[in-house]
Nucleic acid binder design. Sequence first.
DNA 1: AATCCACCCAACCGCTACTAC
DNA 2: CGTAGTAGCGGTTGGGTGGAT
Length: 232
Amino acid sequence: MGRSPCCEKAHTNKGAWTREEDEKLISYIKAHGEGCWRSIPKAAGLLRCGKSCRLRWINYLRPDLKRGNFTPEEDELIIKLHGLLGNKWSLIAARLPGRTDNEIKNYWHTHIRRKLLSRGLDPRTHQPITQPSFATLKQEDMPMVRETMMDVVGDEGHRSSRDKDYGYLDLNLDLSISLPCNSSLPEEYSSPSVASARSAQTLVVCMCCHLGFQSSDACRLCQHIREPVAYS
DNA sequence: AATCCACCCAACCGCTACTAC
DNA sequence: CGTAGTAGCGGTTGGGTGGAT
């Protein structure tokens, strides 16, 4: 059983918004707030689906949007945040006041990707294209890496309590993540895939240590490794 | 002047997460 | 606990625009 459509497609406009539609949406939201998007089109007298209204408001009509070119500082911040968060455009946008996820996503694909490539960096991994990188890791390696990452980032994209305590994103956003490589690693970190990463001489950095949280109780790796990881 | 092509960006689509019942 | 409705997210598309030929 499929889901019912979000709106009556036969009676909705599609495509570019007109000035009149914009004005109707703006005046309605100014008067009533952002409430229930599904009901807004009818209430505002628009022949659009709620989804379309939401996108139009968030990406274009919101009064707090900062239009215009990205500054070099914003560029660098986007690059660093993307290195940390990946394609989580909404999380990246949350740290760039006045910018939308859609805007950042477009800007990434049109400008920053090329900028990274020109620097010899893989836009997806942020690693030098000639060196072993995330892209070389096997799929089965990813859950542990992801879990380690989530230990620091927290869920729902909000700052975790540790994040609040340390304000880590303001300290160091130039992150690199890899699999552990240490003879004292517990068995769970001694899988064949880890061994293969070692043999590839991948640069191994515990994210918590890299961020300056040595021996943090929050880090599962640090719970096992009380000595600093030997960097290659 | 006409055509082609690459680029940009607004908007759409499909999916997932969340919430209420 | 399962289902349905809704909001939000990320990937993709397509129209507009400007430069090159």
